[in-house]
Design a binder for these strands. Structure first.
Lengths: 206, 206
DNA sequence: TCTCAATGAATGAACATTCATTCATATCAT
DNA sequence: ATGATATGAATGAATGTTCATTCATTGAGA
């Protein structure tokens, strides 16, 4: 006899995990990771405190899972978009746009990424070692391709340039969440890439 | 009858405050702000736990004072150095050098600045609102001068450009502390300013 | 009836902060 | 000069609170 693909009863809900992660995003952004109680997260998700531990190992695991989920999404979205673009400069424009669009779309997520995730060296080292490295790698490879194609200067190490671009975008995001946010974060993308590509110095030929 | 201007006995030591702040830098860098106990800081400073509270209001106050002391130093040093340099591009080079030199000189201080100080939005907002704003202002003004002098493009808002440069430097510092630090952080300064001034795009005239 | 997701009260460890006490030194009285 | 007293920096044990995590119990479906 065929059994239903999805349980009809409340059950170990397919999406309770996501529900909890969403609640955690809101609560961590509001109260900060250390200021937030696990019970707050549970309450926001409409469940009991103990239930959180049926889906996550610990409070730390909440934060790590949040990061993983978002980075996985971002990297996939980035790869998809980038496949349709071949010009290296345009690729960088897309990367910058996607980066700032994602954070600008959800302020709470941005707060968690720009502030709460940077709690301790141990923690940051762990993040940097994995998904963040992949993300930086995408930028670096794009730059290296541009150099190979002769449209970017070859005398700038691509990893170095990638860090610069990432740093600039990161700072835009941080400034945005600390400001009153009367502007669209995504609108910063173009300017960042423009300066990154051409610099601020006046061209001599002008 | 004249009384001594300074007590001869051990008294409220002129530098016990500094001593405690130095200890806090080391301990916060090692254990993280939340992982560190006030008693650890006291022990490292060679005093009793309670003594910390004769010099600081709270644990938070330790972190804030640490930030203030360093930023005050940095801004003063920056103003002094910059007075001797008039070319805007050279000024940016000096700013970048001083920035990375200061952090590269003391890894623990760098950890506190790049990681531990970014604990919560409330906290960061407080920092950004004061000394950090002044610091960004120095960069912005230098850029604006360069534009007025015609050596920098005028179609990049100076505040925007300042954020980019700061973000790039900030990322270099963060990467450095997360790496094995087999290189000198200060050596990144030149490259950052180079790209900031001229961009990565190949010059058409070449 | 049986299973197991969900509950939420109870637990116990962690830790910032307090404060009664100590003691080295200064000041005063004689 | 000497002893008596005052000062206040420093101490560190004790306090009280704040949670993360656990687990005995519940009850809704199958």
């Amino acid at each position: 006899m065929p059994r239903p693909l999805r349980l009809a009863r409340p059950g170990p809900d397919v999406d309770k995990r996501q529900l909890i992660l969403d609640a955690a995003t809101r609560v961590f952004a509001e109260r900060g990771f250390f200021g937030a109680q696990v019970a707050d997260v549970a309450h926001r998700a409409g469940i009991a405190a103990g239930t959180v531990y049926l889906y996550f190992k610990s409070k730390d695991d909440l934060l790590i899972s949040l990061f993983d989920r978002t980075m996985q999404d971002a990297i996939r979205e980035g790869r998809d978009t980038l496949n349709a673009v071949s010009d290296p400069a345009d690729r960088l424009r897309q990367i910058a746009r996607l980066h700032l669009e994602r954070l600008g779309r959800d302020r709470d997520l941005a707060v968690v990424f720009q502030v709460e995730l940077r709690q301790s060296t141990k923690f940051m080292a762990r993040l940097s070692a994995t998904r963040l490295r992949t993300y930086l790698g995408v930028i670096r490879d794009t730059i290296a391709e541009g150099q190979a194609a002769g449209v970017f200067r070859a005398n700038v190490p691509p990893t170095f340039a990638a860090k610069m671009l990432f740093g600039a975008l990161d700072e835009m995001a941080t400034n945005w969440i600390l400001s009153d946010r009367k502007y669209e974060l995504r609108d910063d993308a173009e300017g960042v890439v423009d300066v990154f590509l051409h610099g601020v110095a006046q061209r001599e030929g002008k």
